[in-house]
Design a protein around this nucleic acid. Structure first.
Ligand code: DGT
Ligand code: MG
Ligand code: MG
Ligand code: ZN
Length: 574
DNA sequence: GCCGTTTTCGGCCCGACTGTTTTCAGTCG
């Protein structure tokens, strides 16, 4: 079993214990262990060999024994025993909004509800309202929520590139009226997570209740889920949930911190507050003995009062940032303004929309010092990839443009396909004539892990190659990451001095945060590129920067923060 | 079930909203 399979089992165990009404702290213990195993960088099998399972935070004697049992037999006794006493599809019932483990258990014991279909039937036949403690409204809400779940399936999460523009649109609309003074995007969007579960907003208003009212009747609102004095939730066009929290007093910083999360970060901060004699909440600190409330108007002040350096939102995942902040060791993270050029740009010579000149002028307007025109190679036929002859013309055209355009250097490149057998789509003689060679896998993406890994390794061993683009090939909603051994690929990249890309296209974000962190820890250099096919897509750089910041990446980890002359020196460009 | 710069036992983050309830449990963030 691998890490995610072990974690999944532990999560399932927690869910079953919840359904059974077990001690909540025991449940939390299983969830914490599961989460930490899911986020582990090392292979849990290797930790086991080294007898280091106990070093995983949240794994004690009991869970360690169960993990060993799982690694040996694929399951564990306690899991199998409890599993047979619980309906198989309990997960889909608890997943219905408003139904938790208690209600699920009640519905099962009173009505024999075992799955979503049974739940719908019970609601439609008005059997739920007859259970003591349930009522007409509860039944109606369950019916609506169950139907919504059936219709949507389990879409679950949205790519950041979908959610962020909607969040910006809603923020703007809310500011249109006079009731709401300030709106900030919070939650996982503010942390630049690559996928998000919902849109979390906070706002400041002198009349919170009226402001919530405005929110719940806004354009494109599909359904109101909750409407209170300080908080409302709606389903917005596109079936995305939007949570809005409003305050009028001076605790805006405390609220922003709370609603930015993550949950795990919040819990740890609150534990630190407790150890200092305070209760922390979205209203600030409360003295545990005097009950005096101390609100903070900025996040900076609140972190400082807790004895911590300010922690950028992208780091707030309980991945060690709180410990670092205690020692004032939060690094200066890379910013959009550090980027000096884009090394992965397409033109209308292949599948881009604009000419090389237009792309260059747009980049210049952004303050870039250089761009690498990396059109597709011949094998990418649907992308109008360049034959060897057209690539030679491409090189000449770039030479010509460099003579007439001032203020930006156009580098002559390619996004050369790594063919299924690991060879490249252009000859070495041709690659040698280019300034920057970007390579990528496009076709034959279904290869097994061994083949795919060797394919990429072979490409990285080629002396003319500089950058591996979108290394895992994932595309949200379209394609899973390639089966591949990332450790091996990173070892090779390091050995041969190759650069790995953080592709900023919001449907890719590849490398992702975790892999980018792995690369940084190993000392591999990165390039943050947009892979733009149009003038507007240069703007996608913010997504790549957000991902890089989540990986604790600094400016000097990234080659396209270098000035033109320095990057030319680094890559041997004349 | 886990864990310990005042602890190996007794805590474990804290608050909003809803429904069905005369005082709160459940769910969610
Ligand atoms: N203290 C505390 N804060 C929480 C808890 N659950 C959520 N929050 C805070 C932190 C979250 O970032 C924020 C928004 O909640 P969400 O459920 O939307 O989570 P988040 O946006 O982080 O992730 P998401 O992508 O939406 O799943 O509310 C909790 O149990 N305790
Ligand atoms: Mg959220
Ligand atoms: Mg939310
Ligand atoms: Zn590309």
């Amino acid at each position: 079993m691998d890490n995610s399979e072990v974690a999944k089992r532990l999560f399932e165990m927690a869910e079953m214990l919840e359904f059974k009404g077990e001690n909540v702290f025991k449940i939390k213990a299983y969830q914490k262990a599961a989460r930490n195993i899911e986020e582990l960088e090392e292979d849990i099998n290797i930790l086991r060999q080294r007898d280091e399972l106990g070093t995983i935070s949240g794994v004690g004697e009991a869970i360690e024994a169960k993990i060993k049992e799982m690694l040996d037999t694929g399951t564990f006794k306690a899991f199998e025993e409890i599993r047979h006493t619980i309906p198989q599809d309990i997960e889909e019932i608890i997943a219905v909004q408003g139904i938790g483990p208690k209600t699920a258990h009640l519905l099962y014991s009173k009505l024999g509800v075992k799955d979503l279909q049974g739940l719908l039937k019970a609601a439609e036949e008005h059997r739920i309202r007859r259970i003591p403690g349930m009522g007409v409204k509860t039944e109606e809400h369950i019916l609506i929520a169950a139907k919504r779940q059936l219709a949507e399936g389990n879409i679950g999460r949205f790519p950041l590139g979908v959610a962020l523009p909607i969040a910006e649109e809603i923020s703007k609309k809310l500011l249109d009226g006079i009731l709401i003074r300030e709106v900030r995007i919070a939650g996982s969007i503010r942390r630049w997570k690559d996928t998000v579960g919902d849109i979390d907003l906070i706002a400041r208003s002198d009349e919170p209740e009226k402001a919530i009212e405005v929110f719940t009747v806004m354009d494109n609102m599909q359904e109101v889920l909750e409407k209170g004095n300080t908080k409302g939730s709606i389903i917005y066009k596109g079936n995305i949930q939007v949570d809005l929290r409003i305050v009028k007093d001076d605790a805006f910083g405390s609220l922003l911190q709370h609603f930015t999360g993550s949950k795990e970060h919040n819990v740890k901060l609150r534990q630190i507050a407790l150890s200092k004699g305070f209760h922390l909440s979205e209203y600030g600190l409360k003295n545990a003995t005097t009950a005096e409330q101390i609100p903070f108007s900025t996040e900076h002040e609140q972190y400082e009062r807790l004895g911590l350096q300010f922690i950028p939102p992208e780091l707030r995942e309980d991945w060690g940032e709180i410990e670092a902040a205690m020692e004032k060791k939060i690094p200066r993270l890379i910013e959009v303004s550090d980027i000096k050029g884009d090394l992965h740009v397409h033109s209308n010579w292949s599948d881009g929309h604009n000419s090389i000149e237009e792309m260059a002028l747009a980049a210049k307007a952004l303050g870039y010092q250089y761009i690498n025109i990396s059109d597709h190679s011949a094998s990418s036929k649907i992308a109008n990839g360049l034959s060897e002859k057209r690539l030679l013309d491409h090189i000449k055209e770039i030479e010509r443009l460099n003579e007439c355009i001032e203020g930006i250097r156009i580098l002559s490149g390619t996004e050369c396909d790594i063919l299924p057998d690991g060879t490249l789509d252009y000859s070495d003689e041709l690659l040698e004539q280019l300034d920057i060679v970007v390579v990528a896998v496009h076709g034959s993406v279904e290869q097994d892990s061994k083949t795919m890994t060797q394919r990429i390794v072979s490409a990285l061993e080629n002396e003319h190659v500089h950058i591996l683009a979108h290394p895992t090939g994932r595309k949200f909603g379209k394609r899973l990451p390639f089966a591949m051994n990332m450790e091996k690929i990173m070892d090779t990249a390091l050995e041969y001095g190759k650069v790995l890309e953080i592709n900023s296209s919001p449907q890719r974000l590849d490398l992702n945060d975790k892999f980018a962190m792995m690369a940084r820890e190993r000392g591999i250099k990165l390039a943050i590129n947009t892979d733009t096919h149009s003038l507007e897509q240069f703007g996608n750089i913010r997504y790549g920067i957000g991902t890089a910041r989540r990986a604790w990446i600094a400016s000097n980890d990234v080659i396209n923060t270098l000035h033109l002359k320095d990057i030319c020196k680094l890559l041997g460009i004349s």
